[in-house]
Simulated assay, not measured.
Amino acid sequence: MLFEDFNQNELVEAQKKRVLNLRVSYPVALDNKVNKVLHYAVHKMGFDPQAEFTFNAGDKRIDLRDSDENMLSIHIEASESAANTENIIFYTNDCLRDYHRYLVLGVEFVNRPEYNSAGLQVRFIDDEDNFYTLLEERNYNES
C-alpha cells in the first residue's frame, strides 16, 4: 500500500507542468554566436521545444514550450564589460546539482567546480570548442 502511494505521488509530480528559467550573460562582441549557444544549451538540458526559435541581437527574453506544455524562459543579458570579452555565462542557483546533471547529459567540463570571488563556478566546452561558465553567484561580504 505504501509503495503504491509512493508511485502515485511520483506520477503526480512527473505530470506537473514545469517552468524552467535560464539566465545567460554574454559580451556584445559574441552576438553572432548566441543563437547557436542557446540551441546547444537547450538541447543539452534535455528540453525539446515545440517550435524552432531564433535569438536576435537585443532580445532580452525567449519563452519556449515543449509538447507537455512545460515552459523554458531564457533571460538574456548583453554585457559591455571589457573584462568579459569571450565568456558566455550560464547562471544557476545550484552549481553542483547542475554540474552532475549536465555530466550525465554529456556536457564536457574542463575543470571541476571551484570557488572564486564571483561564487562557485565550473567551465565547459561545446562541440565547436567554445568555452562557457556555469556560475552560482555568491556574496562573500558580511552584512
Rank of each mutant, 00 (worst) to 15 (best):
L22C: 11
E108T: 07
S79D: 14
R18L: 12
V28R: 09
E69M: 11
S117W: 00
D68M: 10
V12R: 12
Y115F: 06
A51L: 11
H100T: 10
Y40I: 13
N56A: 09
R18N: 14
Y40Q: 10
A83G: 06
P27M: 05
D59N: 15
H39V: 09
G46K: 07
I89G: 01
T85V: 06
N70K: 07
V110H: 01
L38S: 05
L105V: 08
S117L: 04
F47L: 04
S81L: 09
N93C: 02
R61N: 12
F55I: 06
V12L: 11
F90Y: 07
P27A: 03
E4V: 08
Q15A: 10
N87M: 10
N56P: 01
E4I: 07
G46D: 09
T85S: 13
A14T: 08
D63H: 00
L64K: 01
I74K: 02
E77P: 02
E13N: 13
A51H: 13
R61K: 15
Y102A: 06
S73N: 14
V37G: 05
A29W: 00
P27C: 02
N70S: 10
S79F: 03
K60N: 10
S79A: 11
V42P: 01
Q50R: 15
E13Q: 12
Q50T: 15
V107L: 02
I88T: 14
N84W: 03
C95Y: 00
A57E: 08
H75F: 09
L103W: 00
L22A: 13
A83C: 05
F109T: 04
Y26N: 07
A41N: 04
R23C: 11
G106H: 02
L72D: 05
G58F: 02
M45C: 08
E4K: 08
V107I: 14
K36G: 15
H43D: 15
D5P: 02
G46E: 07
Q15P: 01
N84E: 12
V104Y: 04
F6I: 15
E114S: 12
H75K: 11
D31W: 03
K44A: 09
K17G: 12
I89L: 09
F90L: 15
Y91L: 07
N84T: 11
N32C: 05
V37M: 11
Q8T: 09
D59H: 07
I74H: 00
E77V: 14
R112Q: 15
N70L: 06
F55K: 05
L38A: 03
Q8A: 12
V34C: 03
Y102W: 13
L64T: 01
N56I: 10
Y26E: 04
S81C: 06
E69R: 09
E77Y: 12
N35E: 14
Q15S: 13
V104H: 10
Y102Q: 06
F47M: 04
